[in-house]
Computed example of a mutant assay.
Amino acid sequence: MSVEILTKEDLSQFKAELLTEIHKIIRPGKFEAKKEWLKSYEVRKMLNISPGTLQTLRVNGTLQFTKIGGSLYYKHADIISLLEGNGASE
């Protein structure tokens, strides 16, 4: 059985390599499921807007929505299109 001595430099290098590998595996949003339909609070968070601004986008037709029961839903593709400056998809 051989004995290996680890130095602080070895541990620092291991830490750097480990963090690099973790960052490769876990990237922001990588594991978030892309939902086809989003609720109002999700859209507001995504666009960083107030409820009133979201209502304005609905009223002036900039953002299409579907109402089911008492909840409003928005297509993910429409939100992306709005963010890219292409307006809502038809």
Rank of each mutant, 00 (worst) to 15 (best):
Leu54Ala: 12
Val43Gly: 06
Leu54Thr: 03
Glu42Trp: 06
Ser50Glu: 07
Gly29His: 02
Arg58Trp: 02
Pro28His: 03
Glu36Met: 10
Asn60Tyr: 05
Thr66His: 04
Ser50Asp: 04
Val43Ile: 03
Leu54Ile: 06
Glu32Ser: 10
Ile22Ser: 13
Glu36Lys: 08
Val43Ala: 09
Glu36Trp: 14
Leu63Asp: 00
Ile68Val: 10
Gln64Pro: 10
Glu21Ile: 07
Arg58Lys: 13
Glu36Gly: 03
Ile68Pro: 04
Glu32Tyr: 04
Glu32Gln: 03
Lys35Gly: 03
Arg44Ile: 14
Glu32Cys: 09
Gln55Met: 13
Lys39Tyr: 15
Asn48Gln: 14
Thr20Met: 09
Lys45Asp: 11
Ser50Tyr: 12
Gly29Asn: 01
Lys24Ser: 11
Glu42Cys: 07
Pro28Ser: 10
Ser50Gly: 08
Glu21Pro: 02
Thr56Leu: 14
Gly29Cys: 03
Ile26His: 06
Gly61Ser: 08
Glu42Tyr: 08
Val43Asp: 01
Thr20Pro: 13
Gly52Met: 11
Leu63Glu: 00
Gly69Pro: 06
Gly29Ile: 00
Leu63Asn: 01
Asn48Ile: 07
Phe31Val: 05
Ile68Glu: 10
Leu19Pro: 02
Leu38Arg: 00
Trp37Gln: 06
Lys39Met: 09
Lys39Thr: 15
Ile22Phe: 12
Gly52Gln: 05
Leu57Lys: 06
Val59Lys: 08
Phe31Gly: 00
Ile25Gly: 04
Arg58Glu: 04
Gly29Met: 01
Thr20Cys: 15
Gln55Asp: 09
Asn60His: 07
Ser50Thr: 09
Gln64Asp: 09
Ser40Gly: 15
Leu38Asn: 03
Phe65Asp: 04
Lys30Phe: 06
Arg44Asn: 06
His23Thr: 10
Lys34Gln: 14
Gly61His: 13
Gly52Ile: 11
Ala33Tyr: 15
Pro28Ile: 00
Ile22Arg: 06
Phe65Gly: 03
Leu57Arg: 12
His23Asn: 15
Val43Pro: 01
Gly52Tyr: 14
Lys34Ala: 14
Arg44Tyr: 12
Tyr41Gly: 08
Ala33Leu: 08
Ile68His: 07
Arg58Gly: 02
Lys30Val: 10
Phe31Thr: 05
Asn48Cys: 11
Lys67Thr: 04
Gln55Trp: 11
Thr53Ala: 03
Val59Gly: 00
Thr56Arg: 15
Pro28Thr: 00
Thr20Lys: 06
Ile49Met: 15
Leu47Tyr: 02
Leu63Gln: 01
Arg58His: 05
Leu57Ser: 02
Pro51Met: 12
Lys24Phe: 13
Met46His: 12
Lys35His: 14
Thr53Phe: 04
Tyr41Ile: 15
Gly61Tyr: 05
Glu21Phe: 15
Gly52Ala: 10
Thr66Asn: 13
Gly29Val: 00
Thr66Met: 04
Thr56Gln: 05
Gly52Asp: 10
Phe65Pro: 07
